[in-house]
Design a binder for these strands. Structure first.
Ligand SMILES: [Mn+2]
Ligand SMILES: [Mn+2]
Ligand SMILES: [Zn+2]
Ligand SMILES: [Zn+2]
Lengths: 131, 131
DNA sequence: CAACTAGTTTAGAATAGTTCTAAAATAAAC
DNA sequence: GTTTATTTTAGAACTATTCTAAACTAGTTG
């Protein structure tokens, strides 16, 4: 059982052919930010033909099982982040690219823990730049 | 020339009947966060019948002329904020409501001014809570 | 005022990202 | 190997938003 198969099983997911191919693209190299469309195109470029419905299914199920994080940046499409540790983003509005900002680089204080008795699920910071 | 008419003219916009009615709803009371749909429904409730296309036109033109700010919170719809001063948000994921956080309440440091030579357009902070 | 022009509103069509449906395929359990 | 639950898929459906083009209106000019 290889690393990717273990990663999927540990998350409670069946390691199907399509999930493994997508995992290989997403998780075997440097961390990245993808949209459904960018992922679909990149896989097509590598002659990996997975239906767009499956791309959406996999992005959503990976997100709900903690392997990806969804980022709301642009109301016209969802971004998914392979970096699931707490961090923030630069967003380059012209190119649509994202770049990580570590929590050491940018400090928020006081870091909120609760609001009206409700737990804080996450703190999203997006710094929008022209480029 | 009343306040709302002046506000529109100062922004370089013609004070049409529809824009004035929408401005009255948005700008005459406390600050608020709306979606195209919530605004449309609230106006219908007040027997103000403006086409949904116009609601979208007006929200977009108000935003591009600095009378509103668009907030990316939820990939399934756009929020617009009548508070155009720098501030941050709590987002209550179950109800879809937003609440302002002032820049005195939450500090970010260092406040970024530039990135790769590009200007920072805005710094969005969203604290997502369960409620 | 009347005539003119540029900008605005509107219904309805179109678009596009995403989700749904239901049938075929596959993974896991027995 | 057989069975069962899960997954994949093509294509349809959905939905927030934008577009189209015709009717309307605000502002300008004489
Ligand atoms: Mn989603
Ligand atoms: Mn918009
Ligand atoms: Zn990231
Ligand atoms: Zn606000």
């Amino acid at each position: 059982m290889n690393d990717l198969e273990k990663k999927l099983r540990d998350a409670g997911l069946r390691p199907t052919k399509q999930r493994l191919l997508i995992s290989h693209y997403l998780f075997s190299g440097p961390q990245m930010h993808v949209t459904a469309d960018s992922l679909y195109s990149e896989l097509i470029d590598r002659d990996i033909n997975i239906s767009l419905a499956t791309i959406y299914n996999v992005l959503n199920v990976f997100t709900s099982h903690g392997l990806l994080r969804e980022i709301s940046i642009d109301p016209s499409r969802s971004y998914f982040d392979t970096n699931i540790k707490r961090h923030y983003h630069y967003y380059f509005e012209k190119t649509g690219k994202l770049e990580d900002i570590s929590i050491e680089e940018l400090k928020i204080s006081p870091m909120p823990e609760k609001k009206n008795g409700f737990d804080v699920n996450c703190v999203d910071v997006v710094i929008r730049v022209d480029g």
